[in-house]
Amino acid sequence: MLPEFIRYLEAERRYSPLTVRNYRRDIERFMAWLDCDDASFDPQSVTTDQVREWIIDRTEQGGIGAASMNREVSSLRTLFRWLLRTGAVTHDVMRPIASLRTPHRLPAFVPESRMKGIVGECERDSGDFAAERDALIVLMLYACGLRLAELVGIDRDDLSDDAMSLRVRGKGDKERMVPVPEPVREKILRYLDLIKRQNICDSGEKALFLTRKGERISRTAVYRTVRRELERNGVQGKKSPHVLRHTFATHLMNGGADMREIQELLGHASLQATQVYTHNSIARLREVYAKAHPREKDGK
């Protein structure tokens, strides 16, 4: 059963390999809790009460948070909808299961004043392949609002001939075109020249971001690069590629960009996912108000 479901996720839903892996892991974990495997799993015998017991066990005994639990529940929900559609079950045991309430958290982002210094440093020409690559990673995550998987997946031919725009493959293998700011374009051209002059890629690998051996860079390497660069520049709190994506969106919102334009640049399927950045803007307005408004200054 599970192999057929995985093929459905890959072929019909067109989920990324990472997403498919997470679905498989979540479902196998539920099967293990039921003390069975794919060969002995009988979806028709699963009850809603069992699912509720599993959720309680995972959250209370396993200690996982509401957001992680909701992801696992979502995996099961997708599985049982597929089973219902294919006729493997006669009713959906997941229908009565509600998602757990999660605390509302604003996306972390780097303040504009701090980001300006980081960008200025990244735009400098070092002449060293690894340094240029790492600086370009930070620049493109921030200037283009890319997800980690999107950045790692970029091929050199995804850039337009003049390197002024970039084709990005997002979630569900959906493509979007993203403009490349001129300073980032110049950095890309210098980096591509270094690859050519130093024979970094003589294996035919078409990825934009490469290791010194000419192989596509890994997600882990990108994550470590971002963490190191943000740490070195004194950024407090969470330091990850997604923080740079949040920073991109928040700075655009603060600069007056239209929300639907930001949605398109980020590749969000719905406007609701983009609306969270309005909260960051409101938080910033409150801060400005507290510092500058006469009533606040007078203590009234």
Rank of each mutant, 00 (worst) to 15 (best):
residue 153 G to T: 05
residue 72 E to Y: 05
residue 25 R to P: 02
residue 42 D to H: 12
residue 161 D to L: 13
residue 113 S to W: 09
residue 154 I to Q: 00
residue 279 H to D: 11
residue 222 V to E: 04
residue 221 A to I: 03
residue 120 G to M: 05
residue 23 Y to D: 06
residue 197 R to Q: 14
residue 231 E to R: 12
residue 89 V to I: 15
residue 226 V to Y: 00
residue 195 I to T: 06
residue 289 Y to P: 01
residue 287 E to F: 03
residue 56 I to S: 14
residue 190 R to P: 00
residue 248 F to S: 00
residue 186 E to M: 08
residue 29 R to D: 15
residue 84 L to T: 02
residue 140 M to D: 00
residue 221 A to N: 09
residue 162 D to E: 13
residue 200 I to L: 05
residue 271 L to I: 13
residue 114 R to K: 15
residue 83 L to Q: 01
residue 2 L to M: 14
residue 220 T to Q: 15
residue 168 V to C: 04
residue 9 L to S: 07
residue 122 C to N: 00
residue 105 R to T: 11
residue 198 Q to T: 13
residue 279 H to F: 03
residue 288 V to L: 13
residue 82 W to K: 04
residue 217 I to H: 03
residue 5 F to I: 10
residue 74 S to D: 05
residue 37 D to T: 08
residue 114 R to H: 12
residue 152 V to M: 00
residue 206 K to M: 11
residue 163 A to Y: 12
residue 170 G to P: 02
residue 104 H to T: 13
residue 162 D to Y: 04
residue 53 E to L: 13
residue 41 F to W: 12
residue 190 R to K: 13
residue 206 K to Q: 12
residue 39 A to D: 15
residue 92 D to L: 05
residue 104 H to W: 10
residue 181 P to R: 02
residue 144 C to N: 01
residue 69 M to E: 04
residue 19 T to L: 08
residue 95 R to F: 11
residue 128 D to V: 08
residue 7 R to A: 14
residue 158 D to S: 14
residue 18 L to R: 14
residue 2 L to R: 07
residue 148 L to A: 06
residue 64 I to K: 06
residue 109 F to Y: 15
residue 14 R to K: 14
residue 104 H to E: 15
residue 38 D to Q: 12
residue 176 R to F: 03
residue 280 N to F: 01
residue 26 D to E: 06
residue 31 M to K: 06
residue 157 D to G: 12
residue 260 R to E: 09
residue 282 I to G: 03
residue 205 E to G: 02
residue 35 D to P: 02
residue 39 A to Y: 11
residue 18 L to P: 02
residue 54 W to E: 02
residue 196 K to Q: 14
residue 22 N to M: 11
residue 172 G to C: 09
residue 294 P to G: 10
residue 159 L to A: 06
residue 219 R to P: 00
residue 180 V to E: 01
residue 124 R to C: 03
residue 185 R to Q: 14
residue 94 M to Q: 04
residue 97 I to T: 09
residue 151 L to I: 05
residue 298 D to A: 15
residue 46 V to L: 06
residue 103 P to G: 06
residue 169 R to V: 14
residue 98 A to S: 14
residue 52 R to V: 11
residue 26 D to S: 05
residue 174 K to M: 04
residue 21 R to T: 11
residue 6 I to H: 01
residue 255 G to C: 04
residue 262 I to W: 00
residue 74 S to T: 11
residue 4 E to F: 10
residue 23 Y to V: 09
residue 187 K to S: 11
residue 221 A to F: 03
